[in-house]
Each structure stands twice: as structure tokens, then as C-alpha cells.
Amino acid sequence: MENFNLAFLNALHLLVSLDSEILQYAWRSVYIALISTTLVIVVTLPMGILIAENNFRFKRAIIIVLNTLMSLPTVLIGLVVYSFIGRMGIFGSFKLLFTIPGIIIGEVILIFPLVLSLVIAALSRDNTQITKTAKALGASQLQTFLILIKESRYAILSSIIAAFGRVIGEVGIATIIGGNAEKYTRTLTTSIVLNINMGYFDYALAIGIVLLTLSLIVNLFMQLLQGSKR
């Protein structure tokens, strides 16, 4: 496996020399993943609690729709967002095509159903005991809400990790919406595809190793965060 040796050598070189180009792509990848995960978690937490805590008519239907949306192919999301934010689309005048915010819109759509259904699952355990106790101790609606989240924090954290991983390794949306423009929207994943298309397989593999290393660092950090609260 000459390929792997070369790839590891290349990856090591990129990491040790802090290659400025790769650093730029890496930062862009992490930035996109962080922002879209944050946006989604902020929105899905209250929604998740509303859905998990209440029984209403379309609850099952909502969950089925969410689960179905989880299999949306990224290229399809890319195309749909393209038609909305492209110049012919209704958001065309915002000039979001081929920009980082444009990519983030696509990624938000990608992970929204994933995170929401994981959050619903996390909060759907029998929480009546907790809610009752909290209410009995005089907690307000908001305080009860915060306690619920705190009690389910590990499950919520793993949904955050899943969402972050989904975005940072995603290439379809990043290519169609971002356009892989150097200095603007090129990310680690689109640069992997570019290098494959150029025939530089070893280098592409090396960037892949950089991406995984980065993901490892982020996950170690999250683990630390989790551990310190335990």
C-alpha cells in the first residue's frame, strides 16, 4: 500500500508545517460546522421539548416526516437551495450563492431533521417525575425547561456531535452552493474532491487524514466538557 504511506507522509507534512492553504480550508470547514450546528441546536431544543412534552394529533406524523427527511441526499438539498438563493430564485437578490452563509443554509437544512429527532428522542423518556419535582419546588416554566435539558445533556451532546460530524464531512452542499471557489468557499471536503478529480489521490487522502485529525480534536474537547460535568 504505497498510497497509504504517501498519504500519511503528506498528511503529517501538512499538519506539522501548518500549511496555510490547508489551515484556511480547515478553519472554513470548522466554522461552517460550528455555526450551523449552533443555529440548529438553539432552534431544535425548544421545539424538541414542545413536541416531546405534549401529546397532539400529528406528533407521530411529524416524527415520521423528520425521519424521512434524514435521508435527504446532500446534493438534492444543494440543488434546492441553489434554486432558492441563485439569481433566479426568490432570495436571489441577497447574493448568497457561492458564499459561506449560503453553505450554512444548506447544512442547517441537512442537520435540522437529524438533530430535532434526536432531541425529541432524548427528551421523550418519562420526564414526569422531573417536571413534577421541579414544579413542586416552585420552578417556573423556563426553569423546568432548563432542568429538562440538563437532565438529558448527554443525549443532546451526542446529537450535537453527530450533527457536527455530518456537516464537517459533507461535500454535496458545499460543492453546489459553495462552488469550491479558492480563497472563498473551498473547504477540506471540496478540496478532497478537487484533488481526486485532478488525479492527486495521495494528496486527497492526506487532506482526509487532516479532516479526521481535526474532528478528533473537536471530539476530545467535547469529551472533556462532558467529563468535567460528570
Binding site: I85, F91, K95, L96, T99, P101, I105, V108
Partner: peptide, 16 residues
């Protein structure tokens, strides 16, 4: 509604 808000927020950073 949410989508529109997100689009506007993200767009504002572009417009500047």
C-alpha cells in the same frame, strides 16, 4: 418563517 429569518441574518453579513 424561521428559514427567512436565517436567510436574512446570513444575508446581512454579505451585504455589508
Amino acid at each position: 418563517k424561521l428559514l427567512i429569518i436565517i436567510v436574512c441574518l446570513l444575508a446581512s453579513s454579505q451585504l455589508f
